[in-house]
């Protein structure tokens, strides 16, 4: 009898397409602009939450912006996100309008950074899924 590794029973294993289909937003900050009221929305929606128009156009938003609010560094992350500690989660205003709450990656971590600090998008591994595949997306780094 060939030796077969014993399988581990798992109730939920996400398919790879689940992450793949979100690539436009996660890799390129693609959202939508409402052609009726002009609001810029990220991530993309199918109906404008402001004027309820369906007249939306896909748009790639600026990959640069500034920090508008930053709390203390976070030492207790979710399981699977512990590789780079501490986590700096900040609110960022992109240069062309939308706001994004995202992780700041800048190693070694800066001793101090202030609100108003310029940042740019960084393409990073987000996590490894339960079936083993890696999921990628945006984080931000400080522009020197």
């Amino acid at each position: 009898m060939p030796s077969v590794p014993e399988k581990i029973c798992r109730m939920m294993l996400h398919s790879t397409v689940k992450a793949w289909r979100e690539r436009d937003g996660r890799y390129r900050l693609q959202g939508v602009v409402c052609k009726d009221c002009g609001k810029k929305i990220f991530p993309a929606v199918q109906i404008c939450p402001y004027c309820h128009s369906k007249n939306l156009e896909k748009t790639e938003f600026a990959s640069t912006g500034k920090i508008v609010l930053s709390p203390e560094p976070l030492w207790y992350p979710l399981t699977g996100f512990q590789e780079l500690l501490p986590q700096y989660t900040v609110m960022i205003e992109l240069d062309d309008g939308p706001f994004v709450c995202a992780e700041l990656v800048h190693y070694p971590p800066p001793a101090e950074f202030k609100e108003g600090t310029r940042v740019e998008m960084a393409f990073r591994k987000l996590k490894r899924e339960d079936i083993g595949n890696y999921v990628y997306g945006f984080k931000f780094r400080i522009v020197e």
Partner: peptide, 19 residues
């Protein structure tokens, strides 16, 4: 898709809101 996958859950809201 847009918070948990990015490692964001309850901490950011609580911290940002209080600050």
């Amino acid at each position: 898709e847009w918070e948990y996958t990015f490692g964001l859950a309850w901490g950011p809201l609580m911290a940002l809101l209080k600050k």
